[in-house]
Design a protein around this nucleic acid. Structure first.
Length: 332
DNA sequence: AATAGGCCCAACCGCTCTAGT
DNA sequence: TACTAGAGCGGTTGGGCCTAT
């Protein structure tokens, strides 16, 4: 059961932008006597405003400890990280950024950071790589660009590299899903150029020599991940170790997290992808981490799947892209 | 110079939460 | 325990500003 707005029934209460005179009255009163009851404050301070409006004006604009000016890179990263943990809990996020108000952070998120993440291929709600199909089309270029990042002397920022990495991961996820769908409908695909990986997967799916991973297993894994909104793939450094320490869960490298990494000490849910990444690093980093999916995943035990290592190279994924495209175009 | 469209952000609205009775 | 007042939160809006045409 909600409450009626505090200003209801208060005829003649001023709304809209505050004047400097009103600001002075409010600041002088609060500095002298504190705000006490916001509802009674306007009358006591000589303001023709509702208490709620006064509170907002004070907390979002007039408070002396408010920091002005554009957000720094560190603040941006912190907001994104906290948002990945807390969601739209702007007031909670604001407590970690001294001098910034929840309203300011919310506005900045909606006008800047949200778009930035979208452009980077990150879903601003889930903080996971976007999985829309448009990413697929750009995969070869992304992989090529990722390859160029071996030159660490360029002006390319870690931020951009992380963005690229996420896009690559998202595209890989799409590829694997497409491949599994193709596998589950393909009777006997004819040979096509660069079919090594696909044929290996098919061999596996037919009861194969690599440990008996079958089509149903692959399909179950995709369905399981769909249900849990989890990409099947996590970090899988395509070419260079420049991505080491990268956490696909929130778009920031773990080194950039500084003291804010993870959900330590809070009651928020640990991002499973971040957990995956940490586990992956423990194991030497790189490579796909299907084996690190939670215990209920039907994909457990895939660590013996050499194919995954094969895919985890530039050429492997490029080949796979061609194969999936070929399968799709063949309408198998 | 005029204007249309987009962007940004302060402020508002409606709801939930919490403390007091 | 139920109810109410007040505070706080998140979503949305509207108007000023900027830029492109």
């Amino acid at each position: 059961m909600g409450r009626s707005p505090c200003c209801d029934g208060e005829a003649g209460v001023k709304k809209g932008p505050w004047t400097t005179e009103e600001d002075k009255l409010l600041v002088n009163y609060i500095q002298e006597k504190g705000h006490g009851s916001w509802r009674r404050l306007p009358k006591l301070a000589g303001l023709n405003r509702c208490g709620k409006s006064c509170r907002l004006r004070w907390t979002n604009y007039l408070r002396p400890d408010i920091k002005r000016g554009r957000f720094t890179d560190d603040e941006e990263k912190l907001i994104i990280h906290l948002h990945s943990l807390l969601g739209n809990k702007w007031s909670s996020i604001a407590t970690e950024l001294p001098g910034r108000t929840d309203n300011e952070i919310k506005n900045y998120w909606n006008t800047h950071l949200r778009k930035k993440l979208l452009c980077m291929g990150i879903d601003p709600v889930t903080h996971r790589p976007r999985t829309d199909l448009s990413l697929l089309a750009g995969l070869p270029g992304l992989l090529a660009a990722a390859g160029n990042f071996g030159d660490s002397g360029t002006a390319t920022t870690a931020w951009n590299m992380n963005a690229l990495k996420l896009q690559v991961d998202a595209a890989k996820f799409q590829l694997l899903q497409g491949l599994v769908r193709a596998l589950t409908t393909a009777a006997a695909p004819a040979p096509a150029p660069g079919m090594d990986n696909l044929m290996a997967l098919l061999a596996l799916s037919n009861g194969g020599q690599h440990g008996g991973v079958d089509q149903n297993m692959l399909l179950q894994q995709c369905q399981w991940n769909d249900m849990n909104n989890l990409p099947a793939l996590t970090s899988s450094a395509p070419t260079s170790d420049m991505f080491d320490g990268f956490s696909a869960g929130d778009g920031l490298s773990s080194t950039e997290h500084g003291g804010h990494g993870g959900a330590t000490g809070s009651n928020v849910t640990v991002d499973p992808m971040e957990a995956d990444d940490q586990e992956s690093k423990k194991n030497g980093g790189g490579g796909m981490s299907c084996e690190q999916t939670p215990a209920s995943s039907p994909f457990d035990g895939l660590e013996s799947l050499n194919l995954m290592d094969n895919l985890n190279t530039d050429g492997g994924w490029k080949d796979l892209l061609e194969q999936v495209s070929w399968l799709n175009s063949s309408e198998l």
